[in-house]
């Protein structure tokens, strides 16, 4: 309980609406631009050791929207995604420059506690990764480490989270069963339930459907659209149709080869409303990619 209140308080400290000026490269066109910016990314550069992995990312991720990152392999979309919850901290030699402001607070400020960041900003991974525990314990894990101890309260959270992930009806009779016995699609929805159980504001998804069949993929996509009224979702996807189907805003990343070192560096080419990116992109490289002429 105290945990939730605490979280609310930190949230209140940040201004509810930050600058509305679009910071992405592309212009903005409709009512959606009125939604407050959750992540304001400016001049973001990421290095792995001496390797310049991504350069010059600017974008504003808006609340209650699904923002999709697309682009060829190695363009840095996952790297950028992992900056949003400081997961890059765990990679030795990773270095982040520039600003990622979350409600006005720079996530990379030295006073920021990465553990608290990850409580506010959840993540779903490419490969479903339920813990080798029961279904119940998987969902209860986050709230438990957040300090929730009462059984009845945990029961509530587990049920609510599973319902939100559209999994409750399938598993309510076997909450004690091992999560590893579920199908891949169920496991991924369990991971979504596990993420929402700690009541985050943002859910980052790193190619959440790449290991799933089309039917399971469809369910996850429906689920994302359904829950975006409560969360802000950022999804990395290799599947352009998926980005077109579910997202409100799309960022197209590409790569360039550094002539001196032969290393590839990712960069943001264009960030705009999804409808614009797919129908009338500003940049020729975006158009080449979405029409399948990417070289």
């Amino acid at each position: 309980m105290s945990d939730t209140t605490e979280r609310k308080m930190t949230e209140d400290q940040g201004p509810a609406t930050v600058s509305l000026a679009p910071t992405g490269r592309g212009g903005a066109d409709d009512a959606a631009t009125e939604r407050p910016v959750v992540f304001d990314v400016r001049d973001l550069d990421v290095y792995y050791g001496a390797h310049h992995a991504v350069r010059d990312v600017h974008m504003g991720i808006r609340r209650n929207e699904i923002s999709a990152f697309i682009g060829p392999s190695g363009c840095g979309k996952t790297t950028v995604l992992r900056c949003f919850n400081r997961m890059n901290d765990l990679i030795e030699g990773a270095r982040v420059e520039g600003d990622i402001e979350y409600h006005g607070v720079n996530l990379y400020d030295e006073r920021v506690n990465p553990v608290e960041v990850r409580r506010r900003i959840g993540m779903v991974f490419q490969k479903p990764n339920p813990f080798p525990k029961s279904i119940y314990e998987n969902v209860a894990y986050g709230p438990r480490i957040g300090g929730v101890k009462k059984k009845s309260e945990l029961d509530d959270i587990v049920e609510r989270s599973l319902q939100r992930a559209a999994l409750w009806d399938e598993v309510k009779d076997r909450l004690k069963a091992s999560a590893l016995g579920m199908s891949g699609g169920q496991q991924q929805r369990l991971c979504i339930a596990r993420a929402v159980a700690v009541d985050p504001e943002v859910i980052l998804m790193d190619e959440p459907c790449s290991a799933l069949d089309p039917i399971a993929t469809g369910r996850i996509e429906d689920l994302m659209v359904e829950i975006k009224s409560e969360y802000t979702i950022v999804i990395v996807t290799h599947n352009m149709q998926q980005a077109a189907r579910v997202s409100d805003a799309t960022a197209f990343f590409s790569t360039e080869v550094n002539p001196d070192s032969d290393f590839r560096t990712g960069l943001l080419v264009e960030f705009d409303r999804t409808s614009t990116i797919f129908s009338n992109p500003t940049d020729q490289r975006t158009e080449n990619y979405i029409t399948g002429r990417f070289g």
Binding site: V115, R119, M123, F125, F131, A195
Partner: peptide, 27 residues
């Protein structure tokens, strides 16, 4: 212990010790 499992715990806001206790030990 799969890196994926450890990331899963850390992404939920687990500290390193909580991750070790919740993922590494049971595994």
């Amino acid at each position: 212990v799969p890196e994926n499992d450890k990331s899963g715990a850390l992404a939920l806001g687990a500290t390193r010790w909580e991750m070790v206790r919740g993922v590494v030990f049971p595994h």
